[in-house]
Design a protein around this nucleic acid. Sequence first.
DNA 1: CCGCAGCCGGCGGGGGTCGATCACCCCGAC
DNA 2: GTCGGGGTGATCGACCCCCGCCGGCTGCGG
Lengths: 290, 290
Amino acid sequence: MIDPRRLRVLRALADHGTVTAAARALHLTPSAVSQQLAALESEVGHELLRRRGRRVSLTAAGELLVRHANAVAAELERAQATLAAFTSGTTGRVEVGSFASAITQVVAPALAALRVSAPDVTLRVRDVEGHASVPLLLDGEIDLAITEEYRLRTDDRRLTRFPLYTEPFDVVLPPEHPLAGRAEVDLADLADDDWVVTLPGNPVRDVVQLACEHAGFAPRITHTSDDFRAIGALVRAGAGVALVPRNAVRGVPVRGTAPLRRVVAAVRRGSEDHPLIELVRDALLDAVGQ
Amino acid sequence: MIDPRRLRVLRALADHGTVTAAARALHLTPSAVSQQLAALESEVGHELLRRRGRRVSLTAAGELLVRHANAVAAELERAQATLAAFTSGTTGRVEVGSFASAITQVVAPALAALRVSAPDVTLRVRDVEGHASVPLLLDGEIDLAITEEYRLRTDDRRLTRFPLYTEPFDVVLPPEHPLAGRAEVDLADLADDDWVVTLPGNPVRDVVQLACEHAGFAPRITHTSDDFRAIGALVRAGAGVALVPRNAVRGVPVRGTAPLRRVVAAVRRGSEDHPLIELVRDALLDAVGQ
DNA sequence: CCGCAGCCGGCGGGGGTCGATCACCCCGAC
DNA sequence: GTCGGGGTGATCGACCCCCGCCGGCTGCGG
């Protein structure tokens, strides 16, 4: 029989791609992970890992088993959720991971509301870089992740997601910029400016570049940062212009159709029925006035 | 996090009703089972067992968790099945449990056919009393059970079932019986005979009694046995008449609508896609000419 | 030459057995 | 009726063994 605890190890490997990273996520040494995977292979009688150089990748059988492992994990999560629904008094802790601006936007208000409506629920908030929250969620380090929609594949069967709010991207201009003070700005008018954008790999960068392209130009990129407050500081220092989500840095609306950032909450599949998760989700939805 | 191995113990308890019996099924001591269940309770933070006298029964939370445990088990079974489908050459062992007459009827021919069509598959057959096969199946002692339909609840989500064949009940008469030699017998003509039937609790007994009732009388029961060959011997010895499945003891057809015994094969849910199971199932269906 | 995967020796603890105890139920004796 | 005893079932404590982890090492590859 397959030892279901070993499936957990396999899942971690699939998520992190390397034995060492999986071990970190499981709070184990690489040695232990390697041994467990070897044991799993002999258990199922199949090669699950392919040694590719100094790394490993999953074989087809491995990929298959991972999908079943995900189903098992979801079922366990569901078991915990329905069981928790039996506890009459809602007590417990929920760990929420969120990027900075969403904390001020929705998490902090939700936390305040929960302090009075459900004082026995302790909400632990963790400021997490956008790209890090989903892995943390899957690792079980946090129970609910607030992230941008484009960081999730819609068909990811490991997660359940629900939308929180949508915000447009605003233009941020230096105080001395000729267009400063306008009520709206046309992107095309910024074709000759210097631009401050996020680092390559950050999806926001693609959003900005697509928007500029749509306005008929390619932005001249002079400075980069993944921290929107840093971007705001650079812009105020006259380093260039930027296009950032409204709640990150307050700017000027874009004339016409502005790109949008959709913010969603995600939980591990199966935990969506957990009463504490439902409570926090509802508080978050209340906080965005919905 | 719930340790999924402990769910296995909980399942065994639910199936067998007592810690000792669950321990037997798991090849453990009662002490070990008791400890694992206590650990599970503290893991989920709920009472799962209620001490009722010197026995235990499941609480509502326990019942709930059992259902999830069944889902997890089915998923693990499915994982094993899809992985086994990767092995090109069909090799392995399948344990089949069946009552005696079905062995001669379908299992033996299927075994003979598999010996030539799939020589690397070893089929182990086990003669099992009708009531015992399903528990053995759930315990993992056998992989496929051939049993009467009325021994299965149709909504049992732990099993997948498929029909094999249907046989009518025949009347068995002593050689010196006035109706002996007839091509058909009307049940109503046996109202004044002594009857040999199965023991109370055996569903066949209910079938016989219902049939007699339908024919307008209550059978006068003088001898009982759960072994149809023993019943046949008693009848031939002149002890009375009987109504038994045709393949168990050859008798005389009933005039009008005879009661039917539907014989089905059952496998653990999730294992229906296992290539070896499919192979055996097809061989069984071939053996009944379908 | 660093970093990662995979062995090997050694250790600790989870999880097993064993034996004893307690609780309960079904008896039959009185 | 009730009292006591035997059988059975659950649980606890003590012990212990092996599984599974760690740490250090090797080998390889980028």
